[in-house]
């Protein structure tokens, strides 16, 4: 689509994952802002940095994914969200969908799959914006 590099805000408390996923995304041509927890991620948004996609771990110390999502939706309602997690439950998934999450990814995820998901979420985010991006739930 557009040639502009898209910016992805990545938040995960495990440095290994943060680093590896960040590298994969950069390899795919994305601009990555990586933060080790929810608060740090939120402050990136508060600073007004333009973000095309937020990719966040579901469980993190201090603030879990769902809480972060709630605040994110308030601050930047049009930015698509992808949640990833080690062990997902259907209840958590439904809750996440209710908060307007675009995709919910089970870890471990392959690079190819991540690429597909990220691309789809960004495209969908652009298609939906500025109208509400939330799925019916």
């Amino acid at each position: 689509m557009e040639k502009v590099r898209k910016t992805i805000l990545l938040a995960d408390d495990e440095p290994e994952i943060l680093k590896s996923i960040g590298e994969i995304l950069e390899r795919f041509g994305y601009n990555v802002i990586a933060r080790p927890d929810g608060h740090a991620a939120l402050s990136v948004i508060r600073e007004g940095t333009p973000i095309d996609l937020v990719l966040v771990d579901y469980v993190m110390p201090g603030m879990d994914g769902l809480e972060l999502l709630k605040s994110l939706k308030e601050l930047a309602p049009d930015v698509p969200l992808v949640l990833f997690t080690g062990n997902s439950t259907i209840e958590a998934y439904l809750k996440a969908l209710g908060l307007g999450v675009h995709e919910y990814v089970n870890k471990p995820v392959t690079a190819q799959k991540l690429k597909k998901i990220v691309r789809a979420a960004i495209e969908k985010g652009q298609a939906d914006a500025p109208s509400s991006a939330s799925q019916e739930c």
Partner: peptide, 18 residues
């Protein structure tokens, strides 16, 4: 649409309750 059957299978299998 929305969520296909394969994803549904993996969601169900990954949830301890179901």
């Amino acid at each position: 649409p929305l969520m296909d059957g394969l994803k549904l299978v993996s969601m169900v299998r990954n949830d301890p309750t179901y």
